[in-house]
Simulated scan of single mutants.
Amino acid sequence: MKKVVYFLAVMFSFAAFSPAAMAAPEKKEKEKTELSPEEEARLTEINDRVEEIKAMDFSEMSKDEIKDVREELRGMKKEAKTMGGGVYLSVGAIIIILLILILVT
């Protein structure tokens, strides 16, 4: 049974990555969306606030304060994503998915 799962995992990885490797490189010009001055100002505010949060000392904060800061960061992240657009799948996420497939056996 393990051999079958390993075989399927390897075949899945080959099937997922080989079409991209074999395809001829296409030069696509990405359409850059122009941000309005209001959106640029908001994005600058978000970046400044993130830098402030990075500089904070969390050891002196209570759990509720830390939770509030975390929720604020999540909200700002969602807002920044909607301005920039795009969907990304990190390499770490792909590795985790493959490890889960292997460890399920």
Rank of each mutant, 00 (worst) to 15 (best):
L35D: 00
D64W: 00
E60D: 08
M83C: 04
L43S: 00
M83P: 02
A15V: 07
A93F: 10
E72L: 06
E26P: 05
M76F: 04
G86D: 02
T105P: 13
K28T: 10
A20R: 08
P37Y: 07
S36Y: 03
E29D: 13
V91H: 11
R49L: 00
A55D: 13
M22Q: 11
T33R: 15
G92C: 08
L8E: 14
G92V: 07
E39M: 00
V69S: 01
E26I: 13
Y88R: 13
M22W: 10
M22E: 11
P37F: 03
I66Q: 12
I66W: 04
E52L: 06
K67S: 12
E29Q: 12
R49E: 03
L101A: 12
K32W: 04
I66G: 05
F12C: 04
I102M: 14
G86R: 05
I53W: 00
M11S: 10
G75T: 14
Y88P: 06
K54T: 02
T44K: 12
A41D: 09
N47T: 15
R74V: 15
E26W: 03
E40R: 11
M83K: 06
L103I: 07
S62R: 01
E65A: 13
S59Y: 05
F58P: 08
R70L: 12
G86L: 02
D68E: 15
L35N: 06
M76D: 06
M11V: 13
I66P: 06
F7A: 10
A9P: 06
S13H: 05
E52G: 03
V50C: 02
R49A: 03
K77D: 13
L98D: 00
S59N: 13
T33F: 15
K32T: 14
D64G: 01
V10C: 04
A80P: 09
A16T: 04
V69F: 01
Y88I: 12
A24L: 12
G75K: 12
F17Y: 09
V91I: 08
P19C: 13
L8P: 07
V104F: 06
I95G: 02
A15D: 05
A23Y: 05
T44N: 07
V87L: 07
